[in-house]
Design a protein around this nucleic acid. Structure first.
Lengths: 365, 365
DNA sequence: AGGAGTTATGTAAGCGCTTACATTTTGCGC
DNA sequence: GCGCAAAATGTAAGCGCTTACATAACTCCT
């Protein structure tokens, strides 16, 4: 046991060697592997003639670099991760699309995972992304599993919270409470006092919750409140918007205006209102959120709050790569939302005959 | 020079050692790194007691594996790549979403890149994905840059062409020509003879071209043809659908039915038709393609061809991982499309007064 | 107790690339 | 030509993990 014999073993005796390695390029070009690496990465001055020989060798050999080797030795993957609540949500898709294009131009790759609005899933996905190796991580919102941020700190992975503003963490977004307030104030200024809300799922969704809180604030500032039966939560889908509006119209009294958590819910709400014989916005005003692609084309064209989701994507990329590459970055990046007034909201009908007169007294604070 | 002195150098003297390595876990658990690896990957029998010690060590040390090291040594990245024409295209988004969820359940990661319908960009993106390391690649359609397939073969990367059927390559999809023919036959059976087409961009888009070819075949089988001025190409966006319909309505004679390349174009076409004073489908029938989320909610609800995009994603995953893991796979995977008849198409009005009587003779072959 | 076979575990090579440090080459001034 | 400084290039360690092969431990049978 103490005199273990030195042995010579072959590693991977049957392994395929189809790939061209950096060493092959170096031999072909007549330089060291270090010089090949320098040429490929632009990390040092290389004589023009040697550079040309290396580049020709890469072309002639059809060299494809091994990213895992590069990541392992450089301790950088040149990959950014993003965990979003739902990939199919168009707002996130726009931001992700913009981020992916921006990163592409910077020579970086984006990996996207989804959490289905569940903080435990977000933690799990983030952990998986980190074990695959990411140089930075985009998160959505400000509410996470308690182990997530410490884990990112331990692994030294820069992150940014999007669609929200934060007192402590890097962020790009807007004040969701103010956004909700803005929509409610717009309807209140039109003369509405009976305002309902169709929100997305709010559990673990601080953005949706914040906007509803903003609506409540605006109402309370005018001595009004949001009754329980006018507060509906539904997943962000057209059909769910229909079902939510159906529930609102079935309430003992009806609102004259409805603030929807996004444009898909608003689309469904409009369809259901009209199917119920109501005219939009004459009988009931409806607003959306996000100004998705189809919003302008609805009948009537949707009044909605526009969020430049592509800016969120790009600023996230700038922040994360700024951190990776030690560039100066802003911790807080506020973007502008914009109320896009189209035709789905109007002053309430005077002399309503839809049961509102009966409920008006009970909604004053 | 001949007597080079042996030197001892420190690698990364200032490197941060924040990460816990497999060696740390091994030391903590009192086993070799090989045993830790065996436990984590389930690649060999390990005594229950040792396994428990390893798992506890991972938990106590918050061990996060280094994916690059794993990929380099195992020659597997456990990552699948996908190059799609446009990430924001909802049909592709559904397929990608389904693939991503399926791969996630298999412990694999998906990286998505976009080509903007450009074969040169597709080649570039595929090459980048390969240098990052992918175990398989999803492609869209059957038309590619000539260097792409040979490069995949050289790198030994399994691939699959989606949304198409192929005589030579792995594929999952449907016959695009037959799909176009089916839509045209449906309208012809309703009695239409004056049929226009609003297609997506067809250059390097064999799917769109195939469907238009199918429309032409159906017309020609009945002694009809598709006039040049009724063949419009537009990017897949709602606004473009409006512009295309505007062009069709400005033609000397108008079609009584329009086949749109996807539901977004159809949406825009419906809006423009109605803005022009036409009733859909009474004055002009319109069909879409893909049965996107909003199709059923349009006014009138859209008649469209439904493609199970999620099936495309999942079957792609099964095929690619089957290849990676040496499971039996089918080269050709045909999926069913389905004509979803809603309310946007109807028999043509009798005794049309929109100029069609004048053009009828010139469209007979 | 010894031998054979099976199971469990350890050793050490190496996956492909990067880069700190060492060495060589080049250019310039005297 | 020599000396010095700067530029260019080479050497070799090692990033963290996997796994082929070697060795040790265990079990069963005679």
């Amino acid at each position: 046991m103490e005199t273990a014999k030195p042995t010579k073993r072959k590693r991977f005796p049957n392994a395929s060697t189809a790939g061209v390695s950096l060493a092959d390029v170096a031999a072909h070009a007549g330089v060291s592997t270090a010089t090949v690496s320098r040429v490929l990465n632009g990390t040092a001055t290389v004589a023009a003639e040697a550079m040309e020989r290396v580049q020709r060798a890469c072309r002639e050999l059809n060299y494809v670099p091994n990213g895992a080797a590069r990541a392992l030795s450089s301790r950088r993957t040149r990959t950014i991760g993003a965990v979003v609540p739902s990939i199919e949500n168009a707002g996130f898709a726009v931001a992700i699309g913009a981020l992916q294009r921006w990163l592409d131009a910077e020579g970086y790759t984006l990996i996207v995972a989804s959490s289905d609005y569940d903080p435990a899933a977000e933690l799990r996905e983030a952990s998986l992304l980190m074990s695959r190796g990411i140089d930075g991580l985009l998160l959505v919102g400000g509410e996470h599993h308690p182990d997530l941020i410490p884990m990112l700190a331990q692994q030294d992975v820069p992150f940014i919270e999007t669609w929200t503003l934060s007192d402590h963490h890097p962020c790009v977004g807007f004040d969701n409470v103010a956004a909700g307030r803005q929509l409610a104030d717009y309807l209140l200024d039109l003369g509405h006092v009976d305002i309902g809300v169709i929100a997305g799922r709010m559990r673990h969704n601080d953005r949706a919750s914040g906007r509803v809180a903003g609506v409540r604030q605006a109402l309370e500032a005018r001595g009004l409140r949001l009754p329980t039966e006018w507060m509906i939560e539904r997943p962000y889908r057209i059909l769910e918007g229909r079902l939510a509006m159906k529930a609102l119209l079935a309430a003992p009294t009806r609102p004259t205006a409805v603030i929807c958590g996004n444009d898909q819910l608003a689309f469904g709400a409009i369809i259901e209102a009209r199917a119920s014989g109501l005219s939009v916005p004459a009988d009931i005003s409806i607003t959306g959120f996000n100004d998705l692609d189809f919003a302008a084309f609805l009948d009537p064209p949707l009044t909605t709050l526009s969020v430049p989701a592509d800016r969120i994507g790009i600023i996230s990329g700038e922040y994360l790569l700024g951190r990776v590459l030690d560039r100066p970055v802003l911790r807080v990046n506020e973007i502008e939302t914009r109320l896009v007034v189209r035709a789905s909201a109007a002053p309430p009908r005077k002399g309503n005959d839809n049961g509102n007169n009966k409920g008006k007294g009970s909604r004053r604070s």
